[in-house]
Amino acid sequence: MRRVVVLFIALVVVLGTLLGLRLVRDRRAAEGPPGGSGVVEGTAVDVRSRLNARVLALHVKEGARVEKGALLATLDCTEPEALLAEAEARLAMARAQAHAADAAALASLRASEAATAQASGTQAQLESLAAQQGLASRQAARMEQMGEAVAVATRDQARAQADALSQQLAASQHTSTAASRQARAAAEQERASREQASAATQAVQATEATVRRARLSVAECELHAPLAGTVETLVLEVGELAMPGAVLARLVDTRNSRATFYLPNAELAAVRPGEPAIVRADAYPDRSFQARVVTVATVAEFTPRNVQTRSDRDRLVYPVEVRIEDPDGLLLPGMPVDITLSPRAGAVAERRP
């Protein structure tokens, strides 16, 4: 019986000591800077295929570290290359047609200018003949009015000259009319040629767009790393068919990692975006990583239906995300870490009323 009492007393002492240590540790944690535990998350990017093609080669393996722009895989590019060759041939033909249309438009312009000049010349000639014919008619009329004072031969000659000029004037009028019509026709032809040249230029631009699209398809035959990181997964193997939009590989950037922890409502005033933090991992007990607060959630992770008591408010926690400075990529995704806010941030929060 005495032994049982001694054992009971020893058990009570041990439990009391452990409880006291726990209370002391909790008090120190409460008095220390705010923080919490989280899990490292890397920036994951899925590399997807835009083509319906087979995988010809994989140039990396899972777990390999690659730099931005590194070649990850090569797809079968037979069909896109054929489409590109066809588009380039069409572009060459369209450019030749555009050059021919430009030359035809230039020739039509020169012909229109010549026809216009000819019409202007015939019009000037018509005006000159009209003036001469008028003068000759008036001269013949005066001679006829003079009667016997002028020889009959002279009167006949003046009348004949006036009649000849009248005939020439009529012919010149027909010539001028024809020249004007030719000038209008040449102008219409010149406008049509210009429109054809413009259409040919637009056809060249459309074909150039087709060539650019075909070149983009050919460029998609080689998949490159969009960022520096680690190859986490290779979904397809050599010989498998990659469908448009299908994931071929997943990259994780461990140098630009982040973690999320939760702060209770009472400690929320101790953190603001942009403030520094310290991250420690069990895998590196002698090393700490600098971090910086990125976002502080405005909505609590857990919200009771009615927040009426202090205990209800204490159960409110807010997610806080930090960006970790890890240039060596030591912190891997999924690794648990402890996050402590800068003592300066806690001091600022304590000074607030």
Rank of each mutant, 00 (worst) to 15 (best):
D326I: 03
T17K: 01
G134K: 14
R110N: 04
A266R: 06
A203T: 03
A140R: 02
S166P: 02
Q202H: 12
L56V: 13
A92V: 04
A349M: 13
L332E: 12
P33L: 04
T303D: 11
L109K: 14
P34T: 09
V252E: 10
N256S: 11
A219F: 05
A266P: 00
E148A: 11
L268N: 12
A101K: 08
T303I: 02
F302W: 03
Y284F: 15
A297T: 08
T17N: 03
E267V: 05
D314G: 00
D338M: 06
F8C: 08
V252Q: 02
S180N: 10
A30K: 11
V13F: 14
R310N: 15
A219M: 10
L251D: 04
A151Y: 00
Q133W: 00
A103H: 01
E190Q: 14
S176M: 09
A225R: 12
P264W: 01
A270L: 09
S193R: 09
Q133A: 15
L332C: 03
M143V: 04
R323G: 03
R28N: 12
R250S: 15
M93R: 09
R110A: 13
A115Q: 11
A178E: 12
T340W: 03
V40Y: 02
L106D: 07
A281S: 14
A249I: 09
A73H: 05
